[in-house]
Amino acid sequence: MTNTFAESFFQVILAFIGSIGFALALNAKKSRILTGGIGGGISWGIYLLCLNLTESVFTSSIVSASASYLYSAFFSRIQKAPINVFFAPSIIPMLPGGGLYYTIYSLIEDNNGNFYHYGKETLHITLGLVIGFIICSVIWNFFISLQRRHI
C-alpha cells in the first residue's frame, strides 16, 4: 500500500475539492467553506502519511480522525461556532465509500474472499474513525471543563 508522491498529492487536492463540495451541499456559510476543504485535505494527507509508515488502515483511521477532530475543535473554539460546522466536511474523505461499494459488489459476485477482505477493511476504517473521534472528544471536553472551573 505505498503510493508515489505525485499520486498522494493529487489525492490530497481531490480530497480538498470534494470537501469543499460537501461544505456547499451541507449549506455552510461562505467563510466556512474554505476551512472545511482545508480540513479535508489535511486529514487525508495525514491518513496517507500514516498509512505509508504503519501500513495499517485501522491505525491510520484513528490518527486522521483525531487530527480532523482537533482541527475542527481548534477552529470552533476560536470562531465560536459549533464543532459540527467544521467537522462534517473535513471527515468526508475518510468515510469508507469505496470499501462499502466493493463489499456489496463481492456479495453480488459471490466472491467470499473479497467479501471478507473488503468487509473487514470497511469495518476497520469505521471503528478507527469512531475510536479516534471518541478519544479526542473526551480529552478535549475534559480540558474545556477544567478551564471553565478556573474562571
Binding site: L14, G18, L24, A25, G97
Partner: peptide, 15 residues
Amino acid sequence: ICIGNMIAAGSFSMF
C-alpha cells in the same frame, strides 16, 4: 446544493 453535490461526486470518483 446541486453544485456542491456535483463537485463532490466528480472529485470523489477521481479520488
